[in-house]
């Protein structure tokens, strides 16, 4: 085991940001009896739903002064098959006790934000600071869209995002993106996708006549494309370290 630890300066953990849809249990009361009564009813209606369902407790509808025993509340929900993960809409005074109860607390919703874009506080794992970088890398930046053809000598870069060109890319033009590259037109120029070593990035184009393509540094020049796909709609991706060109 120690040998494994010693050599594993590489990754045993990779942090990624993901968006999940979670069920929110919105409390309108803290009366235990009342809560039990309603939970029984809900479980009867949809028993499947209450098997190991991760939930977020929402306090938005409660008076901020209300005293809540979070340990008890958690136990209650667990009794009915739910797995509470976090609390939303907690008052400042409650935050310490929420953490003590083994829950996370979400920040207050800002005005204009809907439930779909809840800001999650970064998980406080004891990991070296360097890993913070991969969290920001994985977060989604808006796709860069260029609404005209890219001509010879012009360069378009999209750092940290996908790139969409609505038009052709001339010979002698260059595209660089950390994400995927979509070209709704003729591709005659040079394209680099997966800039930060992202091996899952792909290139899509309406007509493949590229001078040069590369994904995460693996590249090919026009001579090496399959003859039968020349001028065809195609996608290019990496599989086992090799570039695959495929019709679409």
């Amino acid at each position: 085991m120690d040998a494994e630890v010693a050599k594993s300066d590489s990754q045993a953990i990779q942090l990624k940001c993901n968006l999940f849809t979670l069920t929110v249990v919105e409390l309108h009361s803290t009366n235990e009896k009342l809560l039990r009564k309603e939970l029984v009813k809900k479980v009867e209606q949809a028993p499947k739903f209450f098997q190991q369902t991760p939930v977020v407790i929402a306090l938005d509808k409660l008076n901020k002064e209300t005293e809540i025993d979070f340990a008890e509340l958690t136990a209650l929900l667990r009794e009915y098959g739910m797995i509470p993960l976090a609390v939303r809409g907690a008052a400042e005074k409650d935050k310490q006790r929420i953490v003590e109860a083994g829950l996370a607390h979400f920040n207050e919703l800002k005005e204009g934000e809907n439930d779909k874009s809840v800001a999650v506080e970064k998980p406080k794992l004891a990991l070296p600071a360097a890993n913070d970088a991969s969290i920001t890398e994985a977060s989604i930046r808006p796709t860069k869209i260029v609404n005209q053809r890219v001509r010879s000598g012009q360069q378009v870069t999209a750092s940290g995002s996908d790139l969409i060109i609505v038009g052709a890319v001339s010979e002698g033009a260059e595209l660089k993106a950390d994400g995927n590259v979509h070209i709704y037109g003729n591709l005659r120029g040079r394209v680099q996708a997966g800039g930060q070593g992202n091996k899952d990035a792909r290139i899509f184009c309406h007509e493949l006549r590229a001078q040069f393509v590369s994904i995460a540094g693996v590249h090919a020049v026009s001579d090496s494309f399959p003859q039968e796909l020349w001028g065809q709609a195609a996608q290019i991706y990496l599989s086992n370290g090799k570039l695959i060109v495929e019709p679409i």
Binding site: Q148, V150, R151, S152, G153, Q154, S170, E171, G172, A173
Partner: peptide, 13 residues
């Protein structure tokens, strides 16, 4: 033709 394309890009910017 390539140089003309380059020129069109310059006109654009």
């Amino acid at each position: 033709v390539r140089d003309a394309d380059r020129m069109l890009g310059l006109i654009q910017s």
